[in-house]
Each structure stands twice: as structure tokens, then as C-alpha cells.
């Protein structure tokens, strides 16, 4: 029997993978993907808890997260494309002009 604890454990694993990906990878596309992973880990947690409590709130929030994530990816990829055009690089460490 698959209990909610398993889903939560999976969610945590996905979130940690996503976090590590955001922190250690330089390629912006991979960073994006890792962010998606984190968001989906959160979604999984929301849906799990919604099922546990027999409420729809968590499900609804999951949809919202997906919508926002889609919008974010659109904007993010657009920025990424223009940075790549300007600097011939997709590394997040190369885009470091905004500093002291």
C-alpha cells in the first residue's frame, strides 16, 4: 500500500534534487528545469495533502502553480534567449553585471 508518507518522501527527494540542480549547475536551461522540478515537488505535496484531508484547496493551488510556472518559463526563456544572443553564453555565472 502506498501511503501519503511515500508521496511526501518522493516530493522531498524531487525538491532536493531540484535545489541541488539550481545551486550547482551553470547552464541556465538546466537551472530552469531544476526550478520546474522544485515546483512539481511542491505540487506533489499539495495534491497529497489535499487527498489526505479530502479537500480541493491543494488541488486548486497545484493548478495555479502550473499556470504560473508556465508563464514564468515563457518570460524566463525569452530573457535567456536575449542574453544568449548578447553574450553567446547560457551560463548564469556570466550574467553577473548587476553587482557592487
Amino acid at each position: 500500500m502506498v501511503s501519503p508518507a511515500h508521496f511526501i518522501a518522493l516530493s522531498v527527494i524531487l525538491f532536493v534534487i531540484g535545489t541541488v540542480g539550481v545551486l550547482v549547475r551553470r547552464n541556465a536551461i538546466v537551472v530552469f528545469m531544476s526550478v520546474e522540478l522544485m515546483l512539481n515537488a511542491a505540487n506533489l505535496a499539495f495534491v497529497t495533502f489535499a487527498r489526505m484531508h479530502n479537500a480541493l484547496d491543494g488541488q486548486v493551488i497545484a493548478f495555479f502553480v502550473m499556470v504560473v510556472a508556465a508563464a514564468e518559463v515563457v518570460v524566463g526563456l525569452a530573457i535567456l534567449t536575449s542574453i544568449f544572443r548578447a553574450r553567446r553564453s547560457a551560463s548564469v555565472d556570466d550574467a553577473n553585471l548587476m553587482k557592487y
Partner: peptide, 17 residues
């Protein structure tokens, strides 16, 4: 203190984490 603003996105992400 302003040295903290390094411009590296990943270090900001680490701080947030």
C-alpha cells in the same frame, strides 16, 4: 557589506535557501 552583492545568481539562491 556591499561585497555580498556579487552578481552570481547561484550565490543568491544559496542565501535564499
Amino acid at each position: 557589506l556591499r561585497r555580498v552583492q556579487s552578481g552570481f545568481v547561484r550565490s543568491y539562491a544559496l542565501s535564499m535557501l
